[in-house]
């Protein structure tokens, strides 16, 4: 098996095995400094992104600031 199924922002997505959260963020073309990242309900720190490994059925939330009141 070379790919894993994860749920990213509510949608299924296939990623290669041994993909870190930081790698996926880069692959998506996002700037990690502007994001909040929650993996399986836990908020990750900036350092945590490099170490956090995606696994089968990982639930990832990529959150950022939008206009609000």
């Amino acid at each position: 098996m070379t790919e894993l199924k994860i749920i990213c922002n509510g949608e299924s997505r296939l990623v290669s095995v041994n993909t870190t959260v930081a790698a996926l963020i880069a692959e998506l073309g996002l700037e990690q400094t502007q994001l909040a990242v929650e993996l399986d309900g836990r908020v990750l720190t900036a350092e945590g992104l490099d170490n956090a490994m995606l696994t089968e059925n990982s639930r990832l939330e990529l959150i950022r600031f939008v206009g609000g009141g």
Binding site: E31, L35, L62, V66, G67, G69
Partner: peptide, 18 residues
Amino acid sequence: TVALRRVDLNDPADDIMG
């Protein structure tokens, strides 16, 4: 004030607060 929402993965460049 700013709010927090999911990144729209179909339009990830849409980052008005950036």
